[in-house]
Design a protein around this nucleic acid. Structure first.
Length: 559
RNA sequence: CGCGGGAUAGAGCAGUCUGGUAGCUCGCAAGGCUCAUAACCUUGAGGUCAGUGGUUCAAAUCCACUUCCCGCAACCA
């Protein structure tokens, strides 16, 4: 079979702070399921992610913790890396945008853009905080809103009346970092990416894309409103320095994080593969054969659908650009947003202490916010975990294995007999596995999960209809044959469940002393576990979440 | 009239592109079964498809207007 080459990237989470469930639901988990699935069906996969580490929040965060920015970002990079490992995210490499490779790649792409006439230097005026000794991004200037009088309006927008503001409009402006009102406007030079000149190129490229509604809607909105030239540098110390050999006036300036962050996909690949990165990223070195999938939250779509492709198109037509872009909506917590500053919601480090990764993986994929924002609550979480994982799947596995083990032994002593009912099951299962695969391939995770669940239900239906406990009374051998068939169903269920619930699947497959990548031919695979094969009856694979536990969790996290 | 997404049984969703008896899961009710985690299987009740108007033999689906929810609005990332 011809192997496809699949490049997968997840939007790089910003390194500042602990990720929450929304970050997992919105891009990391779906991309991991897709990566695992593709590996299982035999495709060659490169799955890349990392932390986005530049920008003023890191400088400010480091100051607050009284450490260097390098120490600060390293600390949080490791926290991210550790958490994602616990959630079983199977990155081929988890890098960071502060790497030497990213600095080089970003600088070289900027040079290419400049040589092609897509970068221009312009002079702006921006607020400088004398006491903080830095230029302030608009949102770090706070003051009284001239429209509604709210006293905590930010320089970019008043959260009270939602009016869009300019920092100049604010009454009594001050720095939100130090509280100092010792501010002044200073002239500063910046590089602009001439998106207006790239607009036609981007549009004709977007027109060849086959994206979902949410993504295309956002892309065309930007194009239709007209792309505006965008500043790609900042007056900060922490970031990719602007190369002075090409831009000699740009001393002490760095690229804006949103310019260098997506370039991180390329540089992280370089970090992993060295020169072999070319076969994934350069069209004339093999990347034209690659199918590239990007996953991100909807807030990130403009950058992936417009800005980053524009950057690559302007720099060099030879760069690989995204084929399929999956934009997801947000996960909310009990009807409101997750909030780092307010400590609202459950964060990934705590979540994994409360429940095994598979519980979260299952629920978050089943409820992936694909069309609209999705609301998380411990009530919904426990209902679906209890019903689907415990009652439908876990209970099926145990009822079959315990039954066989108690009436016969833990060594299979029956042939797999294919009667009419079994034929039906095989053909239906073949169809359903095909549907399930198709849904994952088209990145329709909710539908994929509904299909997977209905596959699990087939096990219970089969056992119930065949009623081996009744047959056992008159035909012991026949009862054993039914159960042996069911044991093979368990094997198949767990193989195809691996992308979603890898730990549990492996646990059961190990107990069955079996393994397998993917089920392409049910008729063949249904008799892989046969006479002489031994198995162990595993401990409960899942445990239920009691209503008391739900109350406790609400008490703990729903303040 | 800034832009985009969403509104479908008590809850969560599919169906809308390509008009043709409104579907799935949970919950609820009744029945079955007793191998299993008080689980599992079957059947049933429950919907003026956000509203109004239009096109059509026929509208959840197409068109127009309205209401409500979410996000974005380019110097937060």
């Amino acid at each position: 079979m011809q192997k496809d080459r699949i490049l997968i990237t997840s939007a790089l989470p910003y390194v500042n702070g602990i990720p929450h469930l929304g970050h997992l639901a919105g891009c990391l988990l779906p991309s991991d399921v897709f990566a695992r699935f593709n590996r299982l069906i035999g495709n060659q996969v490169l799955y890349i992610a990392g932390t986005d580490e530049h920008g003023s929040p890191c400088e400010i965060g480091a100051k607050k913790e009284n450490v260097s920015v390098e120490e600060y970002t390293s600390k949080y990079h490791n926290i991210h890396k550790d958490i994602y490992q616990k959630f079983n995210l199977s990155f081929d490499y988890f890098g960071r945008t502060s790497s030497k490779e990213n600095i080089e790649t970003t600088q070289s792409i900027a040079k290419e853009l400049f040589n092609n006439g897509f970068i221009e230097q312009r002079e702006d005026e921006q607020i400088f905080s004398i006491d903080d000794n830095m230029f302030l991004p608009d949102r770090y200037v706070i003051g009284t809103c001239p429209f509604c009088g709210a006293d905590n309006a930010r320089g970019d927008q008043c959260e009270n009346c939602t009016k869009v503001l300019d920092p100049r409009d604010l009454i009594n402006p001050k720095s939100s970092i130090s509280g100092s009102s010792n501010l002044e406007f200073r002239k500063t030079k910046h590089l602009y990416l001439l998106l207006s000149k790239l607009s036609d190129k981007v549009r004709s490229w977007v027109e060849t894309r086959n994206w979902n509604k949410l993504t295309l809607g956002i892309a065309y909105k930007w194009l239709d409103e007209g792309l505006k030239d965008r500043s790609i540098t900042r007056d900060l110390k922490w970031g990719v320095p602007v190369p002075l050999d090409v831009f000699p006036d740009m001393k002490d300036k760095v690229f804006y994080v949103w310019f260098d962050a997506p370039i991180g996909y390329i540089s992280i690949t370089k970090e992993l593969l060295g020169d072999d990165y070319q076969s994934w990223w350069l069209m004339d070195k093999g990347a034209s054969e690659v199918q590239y999938f990007q996953f991100m939250g909807k807030d990130n779509v403009p950058f992936h659908a417009i800005t980053f492709p524009a950057t690559l198109l302007g720099a060099n037509e030879n760069y690989k650009k995204v084929d399929t872009l999956k934009g997801l909506s947000y996960l909310n917590f009990n009807g409101g947003k997750f909030s780092k500053s307010a400590g609202r919601g459950i964060f990934a480090d705590k979540a994994i202490e409360e429940f095994d990764a598979d519980y979260w993986r299952y629920w978050l994929i089943k409820n992936a916010p694909e069309t609209d924002d999705t609301d998380f609550s411990f009530e919904r979480f426990s209902e679906e975990i209890n019903k689907d994982l415990n009652d439908v799947l876990g209970n099926f596995i145990l009822r079959v294995l315990k039954f066989y083990n108690s009436k016969f032994s833990n060594v299979i002593s029956h042939d797999i007999i294919i009667g009419d009912k079994e034929k039906q099951i095989i053909s239906l299962l073949q169809q359903k596995i095909h549907n399930y695969s198709s849904f994952i391939k088209s990145l329709e995770f909710r539908k994929a999960m509904a299909e997977l669940r209905s596959i699990w239900v087939m096990g219970n239906e089969y056992i119930d209809e065949m009623a081996p406990w009744a047959i056992y009374k008159t035909d012991v051998n026949k009862a054993g044959q039914i159960l042996a068939f069911a044991i093979n169903l368990i094997r198949i269920f767990m193989i195809i469940s691996q992308p979603i619930i890898p730990d549990s699947s492996l646990k059961v497959l190990n107990a069955l002393n079996t393994s397998g990548d993917w089920v392409f031919d049910v008729e063949h695979d249904i008799s892989i576990i046969n006479k002489g094969h031994s198995f162990n009856v595993p401990e409960a694979i899942f445990t239920k979440i009691s209503s008391d536990r739900v109350s406790e969790l609400n008490e703990k996290y729903n303040k």
